[in-house]
Design a protein around this nucleic acid. Sequence first.
DNA 1: ATTAGCACTCTGTCGGCAAGAGTGCCAGCT
DNA 2: AGCTGGCACTCTTGCCGACAGAGTGCTAAT
Lengths: 345, 345
Amino acid sequence: MAERADLGLRKSAVLHAVVEAYVRTGEPVGSETIAEHAGLGVSSATIRNEMAALEELGYLRHPHTSAGRIPTDAGYRHYVDTLPAHGRLRDAQRRAIATHFEEAILDLEEVLKGSVLLLSRLTQYAGLAVPPGASDEQLVRLELIDMGPTLMVLAIGQHGRVDKQILDRPDEIGAPAVAAAERKLRTLQGSTYVDSQARLLQMAAGVSSDEHDLLLMVADVLRLATRGERAAHVVVGGASNLADETQAWRRETLRRLFETLEREQEMLSVLQDVAADDVSVTIGAEHPTTGEWEASIVTAPFRSGEATVGTIGIVGPTRMDYLSAMASVRAVAERLSGIATELDQ
Amino acid sequence: MAERADLGLRKSAVLHAVVEAYVRTGEPVGSETIAEHAGLGVSSATIRNEMAALEELGYLRHPHTSAGRIPTDAGYRHYVDTLPAHGRLRDAQRRAIATHFEEAILDLEEVLKGSVLLLSRLTQYAGLAVPPGASDEQLVRLELIDMGPTLMVLAIGQHGRVDKQILDRPDEIGAPAVAAAERKLRTLQGSTYVDSQARLLQMAAGVSSDEHDLLLMVADVLRLATRGERAAHVVVGGASNLADETQAWRRETLRRLFETLEREQEMLSVLQDVAADDVSVTIGAEHPTTGEWEASIVTAPFRSGEATVGTIGIVGPTRMDYLSAMASVRAVAERLSGIATELDQ
DNA sequence: ATTAGCACTCTGTCGGCAAGAGTGCCAGCT
DNA sequence: AGCTGGCACTCTTGCCGACAGAGTGCTAAT
């Protein structure tokens, strides 16, 4: 962020004006426009000089000799980093959020689905969320259900999460081994997912090979529920907004974007890369994946008490209304923190 | 299908040739092309006459005076209805299907997700599926779990389906009522979803108002699991294929298509409208929704024994390779029938 | 340091024109 | 009676050149 100081007040103001005009119109913006509407009290020639300097610094670029300027990813970055204050929501948006969170809260997973859709409506981009893992949640149930040819591991958490996994049942494992394992599992009800996982590994050490295998499988289900592949899936909503014709994506880019949105694994790793302590913005080529999409991601963590438990945000074109997107994401994340904290009482 | 006879062999052959050429190239096809490549042994002038007649009948249309012909929805319909035989899969496709179904089958829901992706890869369109409801499945578990401020209804079916619903717990319902309801629920384990539902309604008649409400809520969870909104959700996969640039959709149409694909309810009702006993094709304006999309849907039911339990298929542009799509959908549906039947033993 | 002025460059659009594709129809042939 | 070759006609597409418009970059003056 050394550039911020280097840039000087007026250059910064010009950059802001260019970003805002370009985001609004989608057209490259010329010096005249800025001179007239940005209220800087200087002529277009001066703006031209500033713009040339900003281009030299890598914040703006030129589609061709005689077109206006477009912000580069670095330009958007500087813009975002120097936004004077938190964006304000429009009244309608504020009301939409208030209304949305009026309903009774029962199931955090459902709330997240709804919140992602809410964000997609507020911003006209696509909403994303990573739900909490179950680490510190207590197990209300942990069962191994004998379903004949298969076994089902069933874990229910204190806040209503249900994880199931159907396992192939190796022929050599008989009902007694299952029953024995099942008895051990019952003793874990009431402890947390992480503790249970550890205790399962201990238990598995001192038992018959059949039972040993079963306990390890159960431990694995808990592992998946606490983090990683299965439990921490990604909730996507309102992706169709991205196909809107006002978004300037080429067809091929759009296809790749949708393709990745379908792959939970990949989305998860991207979101883990970009997540931060506060509202965080990742612009275009700042991350390989968003670079490929010519897209930006705005995320914010939500917390239960002090601990970050999940992430929510949006993905949209680099030509994004960052101020409004950040305000919406921040507002929704705050509400979610409230809900998550309350549910964890 | 009266038109089929009316049409005459040669007209039909011309229509087939036009459809196939258009599907292959995406360009309006002229009489010359057909005369040269369709092997009908007549001149282009004759083809022109036939084409004019087909246009008169509403099977072909003309983008403008001097362009080739494009099939109308009715043209595709006739083409599909008069396809001489079942399409054959290419060896690579056959192998892809065989490989895909080699894995151990544990969970029908997982199998469906995989099958939908398989179909989307085989056809380059988007895969769709409606999973079975639970009507005749037996309940392995039916529980009402007291989670403090909320209650969770949990139903587990014999084939591994898990339905949960978190309920708001009205203040006036105390632990005794929950425990009493819970005892009644246990007696239902082993009966089918539909039977249990009926018996719950009977039970609810003769008990205290608190318990009455609880039992009705549980019955409602079972109702949703057997049909309708919640249980019979729609599995979608490979939707990004539809954004491929070779598909001629306008941006706005594409957006609407994606938007609807996100709405399970709407998709479900569309799929229920178009489903039939065998491989079924719905072309463009034959259904309001597919009409709006300029798309076609190919579906086939899959069965357990004799009973149809679910639907699988694809959605793609009306300019679709119907023969190959039908062959793929048929092949996958047959495999699924095998799996569903086996799981139901 | 700023600005007015101006030459320059590049895009986008429009009209015209030629080539090409494909039709529709007619007259003659089998 | 049905098919076909021939031909005029129509419409699209691509291309060219011209032109207006937008916006820049530079220079000289303040």
